[in-house]
Design a protein around this nucleic acid. Structure first.
Lengths: 151, 151
DNA sequence: TATTGTTATACTCTATAACTATA
DNA sequence: TATAGTTATAGAGTATAACAATA
């Protein structure tokens, strides 16, 4: 492989190959997940925002935009859609009147629970195709991918 | 957790959590990779198609659509764009006059080489943030993710 | 003057439906 | 009649630029 020419360290060569493979797999998996939506009325990013709010409690639109890697105007729209669906609520920021505080509603909590249930159907269909060793590798890599995602 | 009703094996509970985490990370990573394009004029799917052709040699538009998980009309457009950029060539199928055979040009090979170089810059910037153990986990999981992507 | 968030607008990518040509 | 690919059209999601309000 020609990239070893300018990157002689062997471990980096392996990492480069892994990044290559990861990049392709992540994009294709992303498209699959897009189709395997748990709720037809919720886009992948909307789901991801709900997940972030479930983890972090609450956040401002700007913080959410940075975490999800979208531009502020996009997050404005996403938050508005989630609010219209009753899944998040917006409150004024206690210290800065320019900002807002976004947090999830109880309805969102119920939705996420239902989402987990549906996801398990998909999981069950994959369980036959992956052996325990492969699942172990996924479980080990999951936190690293999360770290990469928000690095 | 309610799924344990029909899935009593404990390890599957861990798998569900892993899928949860993977799903979120894959979507967010996908958005990052979208921005970290090697060539501004090439969409992620166009890059992915070139990668597939580099691995498989050649394929029909229908095969490419199935591998990339896009509908045939989308692949028609993607192949047309790649052809206009001189990165793939189309030839008549030797046995079936309905089909076409898509393969990459030498120019595409050069582009992929340049792509690897730029990717390594991104890689180098991440190398500081991940330790060797984390890289090892990514390398181990990469083939599993690829398997998931085309399952 | 800088920053947070919004509005207005346009672009990119993909899908669905209808069509053509070949099997 | 079924299949491969295309054309035409519409929709979803995001970005950029310009703007408002607050720091």
């Amino acid at each position: 492989m020609s990239y070893s020419n300018y990157m002689p360290d062997l471990s980096h060569g392996d990492n480069a190959a892994a990044v290559n493979s990861l990049r392709s797999a992540v994009m294709r998996l992303g498209r699959r997940l897009k189709h395997q939506r748990v709720d037809e009325s919720l886009s992948p990013t909307e789901m991801s925002v709900l997940g972030t709010l479930a983890r972090c409690g609450s956040a401002t639109p700007g913080e959410l935009a940075r975490k999800e890697h979208v531009q502020p105007p996009s997050m404005t729209r996403i938050v508005a859609l989630l609010e219209a669906k009753g899944l998040v609520k917006l409150e004024p920021h206690p210290e800065d009147r320019r900002q807002k505080v976004v947090s999830q509603t109880e309805q969102a909590e119920a939705m996420l629970e239902q989402s987990r249930r549906k996801r398990n159907v998909w999981l069950a269909s994959l369980a036959d195709e992956l052996d325990e060793d492969e699942w172990a590798k996924l479980r080990a890599a999951a936190p690293v991918l999360e770290k990469l995602a928000h690095l």
